[in-house]
Design a protein around this nucleic acid. Sequence first.
DNA 1: CCATCCTTCCTAGGGCTCCTAGGATAATAC
DNA 2: GTATTATCCTAGGAGCCCTAGGAAGGATGG
Lengths: 195, 195
Amino acid sequence: MARAGVTVGRLAEAAAELADEVGLENMTVSELARRFGVKDASLYSHIRNAHELRVRVAVLALAELADRAATALAGRAGRDALIAFADTYRDYAEEHPGRYAATRVTLDPETAEASAARRHSEMMRAILRGYALAEPDQTDAVRMLGSAFHGFVSLEQTGGFRYHPRGADDSWRRMLDALDIALRNWPAPAADTSD
Amino acid sequence: MARAGVTVGRLAEAAAELADEVGLENMTVSELARRFGVKDASLYSHIRNAHELRVRVAVLALAELADRAATALAGRAGRDALIAFADTYRDYAEEHPGRYAATRVTLDPETAEASAARRHSEMMRAILRGYALAEPDQTDAVRMLGSAFHGFVSLEQTGGFRYHPRGADDSWRRMLDALDIALRNWPAPAADTSD
DNA sequence: CCATCCTTCCTAGGGCTCCTAGGATAATAC
DNA sequence: GTATTATCCTAGGAGCCCTAGGAAGGATGG
């Protein structure tokens, strides 16, 4: 019987496709095997378990997204960079919901280290160079941006903005403007603003 | 054979407990049945399917969280209200991860309408009274706050802040300060959106 | 060219999940 | 006390994840 040509790489790629189609939680080893014309048990020669599959999709997505973000960031600084970066995230999440969801899979330290995760935070820090923030404010700002971007995309995808006529695009733009302002007026350390 | 005393209410309560213990995606009808000393098939006299269970946990959690937030908000305004509200969210998510995750389950319109979801957005709007924002800016601001809160909690829970020594608590405080500043300096509507 | 070895695939099967169908019994209403 | 309804049961189908053990493809080396 001819071999199906399954490799870990193709498996991860197909898993990412499948996750985008049916959602990460409905991405199953069985369905993946079916798409390769192979019994599900056969895939366990290539992967340890279903979780590894999710991890591989996560790693793949993190790299893809980092590449896109890097391209978007080229030649931009300050507010322009912020917006370009944020839009890249949101567009990617819309285009590849399964892959995007996978980026939130918790990775073990070694996998995380080998992944593009560091590139992501470094790009965020690069953006913040336009705002002159020292540590630990820079880390705090990175976390705020990450929270706002991911939170918005997450709420949007779960339908949280569905019950109000205001367009999500418009809210997104305004949020980015507001974040830009927050970064430019970054609060002084622990000054008790008594008002 | 004596009845186990299963009701939809107790089911939802037990499901919430279970979700907090094992995570929402590991909360299963079978395990729930086991805890009631009943066969899994028996539960289908009370609920239609597993999804309904998740929805019931979501509704329960939204109500609980709204109650807590309302209490925290009492007698506070402006920045104080913002912080009290945000802390309520984050504390609840830490205390009840399964319930919190359920609040992100997509509800059908009628269920959403009957849930405490509206109370949540109304509380956010109440907070924004301290910042004098007119529509649609108010909606945009509500979405920004929701995004930042949920995003932070989500990243924190999936371990996104694990690879840097800076404490998450500190970043959280600073993010709230920054959001307060963003609200007080809310951007003027874009003059031109042509680029 | 042939023997060897590793990889990839198979069948078989166990255990868990969700869920349906149909029947029995407990609690309640009349 | 009987009829009704709600709650529980057993039985079973289908899908999922995963393991064990075996067969065959494809490469390697004599």
